[in-house]
């Protein structure tokens, strides 16, 4: 990629990109850790997630500030403008992913206090899928890779179907034995959080496509009619 005439501009943009990547890395770890806390019935891990999320929140504020500074001082245009506005949006998604990981961690602490329910194969699968989606979305962002971003958007359907299977399975468990309701309900929340988390990964992927191509792929048909070319 061609460098800006003013090299310090490039330095500032790179700095923003690195901050976003490091934030992405942190939320990926959060997802992995909260799922391990659930699988290994280790509440200490869950506490770690909750603690680490404060760092994530701090970074969100920092990235917001970096974006505002670039907007006002550089008045970016074209790809720079799209990169910075994308950064402003995906930082929100990443922070929400962190929050959801915290929610899962809180459920894990709760669940770890009662005996385990039956092993949930689909839950593991859902968690793996989520991690994969988040990582793929971040990779797409780093590489400006539209194909990878499109794959993330497509794979969200897969994630949804796993979630629906899990939902039915947990519902069946609850009807089987009312004593299961409390734990199954908690697991249902965990599943729901993971499903939402996947949606945020999809948002990131959509913004990556906008950033690269300049076209908005969200909510087809809802945008103002494109201005007529001269």
């Amino acid at each position: 990629m061609k460098a800006h005439t003013d090299k310090t501009y490039d330095v500032q943009l790179d700095d923003l990109r690195n901050k976003l990547l490091s934030l992405g890395g942190k939320v990926e770890t959060e997802i992995a850790t909260c799922m391990r806390s659930l699988a290994e019935r280790d509440s200490v891990l869950a506490e770690q997630v909750i603690a680490q999320d404060r760092e994530v929140n701090r970074m969100e504020v920092e990235i917001d500030e970096a974006c505002r500074r670039l907007l006002v001082l550089r008045q970016p245009a074209a790809s720079d403008l799209r990169f910075i506005t994308t950064a402003l949006k995906i930082v929100v998604d990443l922070e929400r992913i962190g929050d959801l990981a915290v929610n899962v961690a809180e459920r894990a602490i709760d669940l770890n206090q009662s005996p385990p329910l039956r092993p949930m194969h689909d839950l593991t699968k859902l968690a793996e899928l989520c991690q994969k989606q988040v990582r793929a979305a971040l990779d797409a962002f780093v590489d400006g890779d539209v194909a990878k971003a499109e794959a993330v958007i497509k794979d969200d359907d897969l994630l949804d179907s796993v979630y629906h299977n899990l939902f039915s399975e947990l519902l069946a468990l609850m009807m089987e034995d009312p004593r299961n309701i409390r734990r199954a309900n908690s697991l249902l929340f965990v599943a729901k959080h993971l499903e939402r988390l996947g949606d945020h990964a999809t948002n990131v992927a959509e913004m990556v496509i906008y950033m690269v191509r300049g076209t908005d792929v969200r909510h087809p048909g809802s945008r103002n009619s494109k201005s007529v070319p001269p």
Binding site: A3, T5, A77, A78, S79, L81, T215
Partner: peptide
Amino acid sequence: HGPTEEIFTNPREPRTEDYVTGKF
């Protein structure tokens, strides 16, 4: 040559892109 919004957010030509982003 195009709508102003497009030139400044999503130019089609690499030379325009370089100019509006300050890469000249």
